[in-house]
Simulated scan of single mutants.
Amino acid sequence: MATTPQTRPAGPTATSERALGPDLARGFMLLFIALANSHYFLRGDTVRGGFPMDGTWLDSAVTWLIATFVDGRAFPMFGLLFGYGVAHIVRRNEALGPRGVRHLLWRRSLVLIVVGFLHAMLLYVGDILAAYGVLLLLGAWTVRWRARWLVLVAVAFFALGLAPSADSLSVSAEPPDASMLPPDLAAMFSERIVVQPIIMLFGPIGFACPFLIGLLAGRARVLEQPERHRRLLIVTAVAGIGVAVLGAQPAALMLAGVTDVPGEATLELIGPLHDAAGVLGGFGYAALIALVAARLTGRTGRITEAIRATGQRSMTCYLMQSVVWAAVFTPFLLDLSGTLTVTTTALLATATWLGTVAAADWMRRTGRRGPFEVLVRRVTYGPRRT
């Protein structure tokens, strides 16, 4: 019997058919995204790497924890999951052919760019959605590359991240610039319209390695079938997180005030070391959560389901976080960037994440999808396939 060629996208995977691991990873790591983003709004007499250096011993301890386990570790994991999800879309729509799949991915990339641009202009200039959109716009050409080419290019981008630079550990006595903390609406738009395109166009360089590795993992369905890849996941979790923790120490101990600030030449080495180790840490976190998910599959409780629901609505929950940052830190709103400390900001970030988990769980229990997930799917697949 002749088969009818596929002319329409297969549509998104039903919620009931989604694997636990990727959703659980997205949901939990949004806590790390909140912790990583929020401290960059803080003011202080001296600020290095986004941390005021004049806090209490508790602030120093929290700084060490965030610099060791959070900063530069969560975003690579999301980059990997982004590539993983793209591989899933390609597999489900293989019958469309290379051109049809590229068009499908390009539609998805364009909606990410538009939403990300508006997000950056209205709420948070450090938006990553537009950068993901640009990455997918270009990355759509890579989805059919052979594995060895994906690995070679990923390694090249990883090596690029090791190039000496002191930008991530720069010191300043000034508050965050006007694009982060605009004094008024006019400054907000005039400053962000300059900064946002730079982040959007250069951000994909940092996400390229995790994205390409995510494509490979997605092809093998590593996170969906953890029982078949248990050894790989264990090695990745132990090695990735171990390297991330060790590689963070030169920067983390300095930021916490335990060690002295070294010379410029040393700063140019420990900053890239911190970030490159974080890429491996992102892989390790994804592997660890996949192993946990394998133990929980079939016997999830209320908390696990709530975090899973957050991961299924990760874009909506990410944007909800930015509403909090805008309200709390913007100078013409609550203007608390000079009042909150590293510790109280971390508590705010945790409370914000818990609020999004509660909201996502309510949407799950009432049968609602995240509004921005609906938007992306409607643009990608059409109005009847959301």
Rank of each mutant, 00 (worst) to 15 (best):
T7H: 06
A14S: 09
L20F: 04
G21A: 15
D23S: 14
L24V: 11
F28E: 04
L30S: 05
A34K: 00
F41Q: 10
T46M: 06
G49D: 03
G50F: 01
G55W: 06
G55V: 09
G55Q: 06
L65F: 15
L65I: 15
T68G: 03
A74L: 02
P76W: 01
P76N: 01
G79L: 09
G83Y: 02
V86C: 06
R99S: 13
R108W: 05
R108P: 14
L112F: 11
V115C: 13
G116Y: 01
A120V: 02
L123P: 03
Y124I: 05
A131F: 02
W141H: 11
V143G: 03
V143M: 05
V155G: 06
A159Y: 07
A163C: 06
S165M: 08
A166Y: 11
V171M: 14
P175N: 02
A187M: 06
M188A: 11
I199A: 08
C209M: 15
Q225V: 14
P226F: 00
E227W: 04
H229V: 12
R230Q: 14
L233N: 06
A237C: 08
G242S: 01
Q249Y: 01
D260C: 05
V261A: 15
L267V: 11
L269A: 10
H274P: 02
D275Q: 12
L280V: 03
G281F: 00
R299S: 14
G301R: 02
A309C: 10
T310A: 15
G311W: 01
Q312P: 08
Q312I: 05
A326C: 12
F329Y: 15
T330L: 09
P331Q: 00
T339P: 07
T352K: 01
W353H: 03
T356Q: 15
D361E: 13
D361N: 14
D361V: 01
R364A: 10
P371R: 10
V379P: 12
P383M: 02
P383V: 06
R385P: 03
